[in-house]
Simulated assay, not measured.
Amino acid sequence: MKESKAAKLKGFKHSRPGLYLGIGSSAFGAIGVIRDARAARGERDTLKLVNAVVAAVALVTSTALLIRELKQLGDDDILLG
């Protein structure tokens, strides 16, 4: 039985390369958040600044989850000891 494309993608999401890709995507997202925060500070727009801070917290949280999953993946690997 062939595995569907959706099932393959779900498997990739929880693989080592998939987790690294997620962390890299978060890094690129941080660039946008920093840009938005600087623009909000320049405009003295508190609401936009709050939005940038919330987005930054979400990026930090998602990156921490990815790193935790990456560590758990490493703990399950017998060859890594």
Rank of each mutant, 00 (worst) to 15 (best):
I67C: 10
R41E: 05
A40M: 01
T63L: 03
D75T: 00
G32W: 03
R44K: 13
D77A: 11
T63A: 14
V50L: 06
V60G: 15
K10E: 15
A52R: 01
V53F: 02
E43R: 09
R16P: 03
L59S: 12
R16A: 09
L79N: 03
T61E: 06
G74H: 03
N51D: 06
L70P: 02
R68Q: 07
L79H: 05
R35N: 06
L70V: 02
L19V: 08
G81N: 07
R68K: 07
I34Q: 05
N51I: 00
A30L: 15
A58H: 10
G29V: 07
L70M: 10
L19M: 13
L66G: 07
G74F: 00
S4L: 09
F28P: 04
R68D: 09
I23Q: 09
A52K: 01
S25T: 09
F12I: 12
V60D: 13
T63C: 06
H14K: 15
G32F: 04
K71T: 01
E69G: 08
R16F: 11
V60I: 15
G22N: 09
A27R: 12
E3N: 08
K10Y: 14
K2R: 05
F12S: 03
S4E: 09
M1V: 06
G32T: 03
V53H: 02
G22R: 13
V50C: 00
L49T: 00
L79A: 07
A30G: 15
E3T: 15
S15Q: 10
S25L: 13
S15V: 12
R38E: 01
K71A: 05
D36Q: 07
G32C: 02
